[in-house]
């Protein structure tokens, strides 16, 4: 993909993301942030391709570390977000 297009994707996604996230109430800002944390683990895609095509043992090892850390980021982020969101509930519905 051409560099220009990639930069364009970056700009568009940033602007669209900003507009959508603006609607999230401050009530949910902590889960929003941990969810974003999980998403930032998307860098695992880059780590996967770079590692798969790496030749040297050294760079492969670096790549493996990157994969593990990025996956901790993804899995930990999503787990904690869902755990948190499940705590938000109506008392009325819950107790009676």
């Amino acid at each position: 993909m051409s560099p220009l297009l990639l930069i364009l994707i970056f700009i568009v996604s940033t602007v669209v993301g900003y507009m959508i996230i603006k609607n999230v109430p401050s009530l949910l800002h902590t889960p929003l942030m941990s969810g974003m944390n999980a998403l930032s683990g998307i860098t695992v895609l880059g780590a996967l391709t770079a590692t798969a095509f790496a030749l040297g043992t050294g760079s492969k090892i670096l790549g493996y570390i990157a994969i593990v850390l990025a996956m901790i980021n993804v899995a930990g982020g999503f787990t904690v977000t869902s755990k948190m969101l499940k705590m938000f509930k109506h008392k009325e519905v819950d107790n009676k």
Partner: peptide
């Protein structure tokens, strides 16, 4: 790494 998906989602996180 020439991956448009990473670019897009990373951008969303950055904006947030």
């Amino acid at each position: 790494s020439n991956n448009p998906l990473t670019v897009a989602i990373g951008g969303i996180v950055g904006a947030s």
